[in-house]
Every structure is written in structure tokens, then in C-alpha cells.
Design a protein around this nucleic acid. Structure first.
Lengths: 302, 302
DNA sequence: ACCTACAATCGGTAAAATTAATTTTTTGAT
DNA sequence: ATCAAAAAATTAATTTTACCGATTGTAGGT
């Protein structure tokens, strides 16, 4: 196969086209005249066309040479633009981040974080996808998402996790429910209660059960909700009690709802851990940590 | 200075972007995996950006990597277009030829040559400039013109000339003029005649004088014409005789004009030489010779 | 615990780019 | 015609780079 033209050769050609003088062009390219001469020759052979007409008095550009010069200039400026792109992309959080957030976090953290984030990193484009942990994990591994904001621990291969904060579970019960009389609420007080939880697939359910040392089989209530917002009116109607994340309450999930009371657990550790997750090999590791700072500093209730 | 990205590296990148697999990409590029790997690394360092996210299981393209890939594909296809241009330009007489023609040739040769030329070389674009020999010569040396069609000899540095044919001078005189009685016309019969010629600058004038062995000082008629077409009516009106190029007569410069007769010289050598002229270093030498063939084969009167 | 698949890395060698010096070519001037 | 000047081409030696084959390291699957 014929040798390919190189960018260096195109640079030499354009330099000659500018000065119409091999010696000057060589200087402009920081090479010796012989190097430039050889480069031009290579290009002419690679293209199989005479681009320049040389004499000892003047250098002229041929018809086809002129066309090649024009194309070369275009290509070289495209290369510059490409390099420029790379430089611009260096600024942290200046590009798109495709983030996946589980449904029990997204509505309660985004309204608070997004505005300040946009202020500090106006170039950042957050592309948000809300889905269950399992689906998000798959998308992360497939490279469809860059970052997950979810409850930890959640096992995903080759990922790095970043702790943000703990989000306590708060008991929500119908006002006047007997449990209101318990002074120091402990997880064992939940035994035998009708506890409303989200349906399978929501990790909030699993984390709540684990935090309260309950087995799924202990739940007497067969009904399972599809979102926190539908649990609230059910509790208010006396269907049962529920475990709500504090961040949801802080963000006002109960506002406007009557007949619901809440009580915090007196024990430590009745919470879920909130964190970030990304592919361990991701070159944007440091950017994601930076983003983590923002979520930390702007957590609901802080 | 940071090393420049090379086209080879961009090719490697695009290959990886296609297969998302270093080994396959390497094969597609006809290099080993280690070579490709090193190339991608160089590119990333040259740009200072992580373009790919590698693990032993999958290769993902980063956000910025995606942009660079898109630009690279664009650049690489531009390179192909450039090469394509060069190949197309290889076909002889497939590009522009900027030709300069003197006013005493152009109107009499172009109508005949252009049609057949266009038929055989439809890609050829003849850009014609009509001017005096001296001006054309300057333009040729400056590279503003590629080729001259003119009367020879005409001294121009560093040029190659190509003989086309001889164009005899024919005496034109008012019908009934005494010279009509001369049986064997010779140049010495012109002595003492009122001879109408073009003004200074037209080489036709000088060549006519030389061919007829006359001195400018021998001309009794002070008036000089600006074009052959203005000479004709003057001869018809009896102002004097003139020496017209045969090609002009063949192309019908006298048609429709009454009271003019013509007579050929009985001697050999009463002619001007018509030829092509180009810079000796021109790489299109062979194309110009080919073009010369056309002018030869389609000379006026042939 | 082993095997597999993959990209990164290493060491050696072949190829190429680059330079400084020289040669050739051309051309204007004497 | 000869000379001198200018400029690109060429040459030969050296440095640099590219490339390959083999090996290493890492994760995942069995």
C-alpha cells in the first residue's frame, strides 16, 4: 500500500505555501531545510502528484497543490480544534455526567443540590435517570451511566463507592396510634406491628428491614406500596405504620398531610447509608469525588 | 512542547471505538495489540485526556473520548478526500490550465480547437487570458499563467517552447491595386508600399517585418492599427496593403468584406512560428505537450 | 484455586526521521 | 562564456521512534 500522508508533511506543505521558500518554511517548522525538503518529497510521492514547482529562484504551487494546501489547512485547523476540545474537557465537571439515582433518593436530594451545583459548575450537564438499584447497576456496568447515587451497600463488580452520609429511618404512624406512648423507641417495638413498606426491588425495603433487624416473613401486612408518596396517605388512614427516610421528611413529604406523627429511634444505626458508586476504572474518579463533596455539603436537613 | 497527535493514533482510536476491543482493533489496523495500545496511550498523553476506560472485560469510551472520536473520523475522511483529490488530478488534462494567448492568435484558433478539446478532455478547464506577449511572459514567470500560446521566438527565461506550426503571412490589398499584377509575389515587392501594421507591442508587427526583411523605418505610413479586425476595413478603403496571418483569413476575417484581394508569397519562410511556452520546471510538461498535439492537429486550415 | 480473556508493559531490533555537510542546478551578472 | 550566488536536492551518519513478541497483571467465570 502507498504510504499515508502525515500531518507533519501537511504542516511542511502549508509552511512552504506561506513563504514560498523552503529555507524559511523549514525555520518556521523548526527543522532543517533538508528535513522539510524530504518531507515535501514524501508527501508528493504519497499522493502521487507534483504539488510544488521548484526552481532556484522561486517556488510555485501547482493547481493540484493549491487544492491540497487548502484541504491541509482545513485538516490542520481541525486538529487544533480537537486539541482544544481535549483541553476544555480538562476542567473538572465541565462535561456531561450521566447519573442514576434510586427513586427513594432522587426527589429528596435533587431540589437542594442542583441549584448550588449549577452555580459552581455551570458547564456541568447532569443527565439523570431514576430507576431501581439493580437496573442502575447494569446500566453503570454497560457504560450507559457514569455514576450512581444510591443506598449502600450494594454489590457491583469493579466499582468504587463513596460514602456520603447516613439517612435515619423514622417511624411514621397514625396520630393516636398506641406506639405514640413509647418514650424510647427501639426497633424491637416494631414486632407485631403492621408495617407498610415498598414492594420488592426497592432497596429501601431491604435496608429498612435490615436496620430494624426484621425478617420479611415477620411482616403480617401483605400489601406493598409502589412509592413513598403512596405510603403516606395509607399510614394517615390507619392502615399501618411505616419507616420513612429522614431525608424524605426533611424535604416535606408529610407536609399537608394530617393524622400522621413521626418518632425517631433512640438507637444508633437505624439508618441507611447513602453513597456514590462508579466503575473503579473510570478516569473521572476525581471528578466524582468532587461531586460527592457537593452532595455531602448539601444533604437534606444539613 | 507537548507532542502532536498523529493520524495513525487517530486511526487507532477510531478502530477501538468501532470494535471496543484492543485486539480486534489492532488486527483491523494491521499492527499488534501492543503497538495499538502504545499508540492510544501516546494520544491520550498528547491530548492530556483519558479517552478510553479500559478493564480486562470491556472498553468504554469516555465523554470527551466520544467527541475526539467524532472529530477524528471527520479528519480521517478529510484525509481520504485529499488523497482522492490527488488521484483525480493524475488524469492528464483533468484540471485547470491557465493559458495566455496573444490577440493575433486567440480569435483564430480557439473556435476550432475548443470543441474537440472539450470532447476528449471534458474535465479540462481552460482559463484563457488574452494579452500582449510581454505581459503574458511576466504572468507566466509569476506563476499566474501556466501556458502561453504565442508567436515564437520570444525570449523568456527558463521556459520550454513547443513548436506547433508555421503561419504564413498573406498580402491583403485593395482590389485593383497595382500589386495584383505581380505574378510571383516576393517580399521585395513590398518596398515602397504603404503597409498597414499593428501598433508597437504586438509581436505580429515585428514578426511580419522580420519575415519580409523590412525595417520599421522603411514604413512610410505613420498610422498603426490596434487590431487585425480594424486593419481589414482600412485596406478595403484603399489606405494601403497589409500582411495578414493565414490563420486569420482561414477563420474568415475577410468574409463579408468587399474590395479586398489576397496573394500568397511565392518564397518560403514568409511566416511566423506559432508555439507553446511554459516554465521549464513545470511538472505538467507532458500535459502541455499533449495539449500541443491538439493545437497541431486542429490548426486553422488543416 | 485454576483457567481464560484482556490490556499493559518490557526488551530488543528494525525502520525512520533528522541533521550537518556537500552537491547539483539554475540564473543573473560580469 | 564564464563566474558567482542562491536555493533546493542529496548524502552519510546518528539519533529517535515504531514495532513486535513475550511476559505480566487483573478480573471473572468455572
Amino acid at each position: 500500500m502507498a504510504p499515508q500522508p502525515t500531518l507533519k508533511q501537511l504542516r511542511y506543505l502549508c509552511a512552504v505555501a506561506q513563504s514560498l521558500h523552503f529555507g524559511k518554511a523549514a525555520k518556521a517548522c523548526f527543522v532543517t531545510q533538508s528535513t522539510l525538503s524530504a518531507g515535501i518529497n514524501e508527501l508528493e510521492h504519497a499522493l502521487g502528484a507534483a504539488l510544488l514547482e521548484r526552481s532556484n529562484k522561486q517556488v510555485l504551487i501547482t493547481d493540484i497543490g493549491q487544492k491540497i494546501v487548502a484541504r491541509s489547512q482545513h485538516i490542520l485547523s481541525d486538529i487544533e480544534a480537537l486539541k482544544e476540545d481535549a483541553v476544555k474537557a480538562q476542567a473538572p465537571l465541565s462535561n456531561s455526567v450521566r447519573i442514576g439515582i434510586i427513586p427513594t433518593i432522587a426527589p429528596f436530594i435533587l431540589p437542594r443540590v442542583l441549584p448550588s451545583l449549577h452555580q459552581d459548575f455551570p458547564e456541568l450537564r447532569l443527565l439523570i435517570r431514576e430507576d431501581l438499584s439493580e437496573n442502575l447497576a447494569n446500566l453503570l456496568l454497560q457504560g450507559e451511566l457514569d455514576l450512581l447515587l444510591m443506598a449502600l451497600p450494594y454489590p457491583v463488580n469493579n466499582t468504587t463507592s463513596y460514602h456520603l452520609f447516613y439517612d435515619p429511618f423514622v417511624l411514621a404512624y397514625p396520630t393516636g396510634h398506641p406506639i405514640a406512648d413509647v418514650k424510647q423507641l427501639r426497633t424491637r417495638d416494631l414486632q407485631g406491628q403492621d408495617i407498610l413498606l415498598l414492594e420488592h426491588g426497592h432497596c429501601l425495603r431491604d435496608h429498612a428491614l435490615e436496620a430494624c433487624k426484621l425478617q420479611s416473613s415477620q411482616l403480617s401486612l401483605a400489601f406493598e406500596a409502589t412509592s413513598l408518596h403512596t405510603i403516606v396517605p395509607m399510614v394517615a388512614n390507619g392502615v399501618g405504620v411505616s419507616l420513612l427516610p429522614e431525608m424524605a421528611i426533611n424535604e416535606g413529604i408529610l407536609s399537608g398531610t394530617k393524622n400522621i406523627s413521626t418518632k425517631e429511634f433512640s438507637e444508633k444505626g437505624v439508618w441507611r447509608e447513602i453513597g456514590l458508586l462508579w466503575r473503579a476504572k473510570s478516569p473521572r474518579d476525581s471528578e466524582y469525588r468532587l461531586l460527592g463533596e457537593y452532595f455531602k455539603n448539601n444533604r437534606p436537613g444539613s
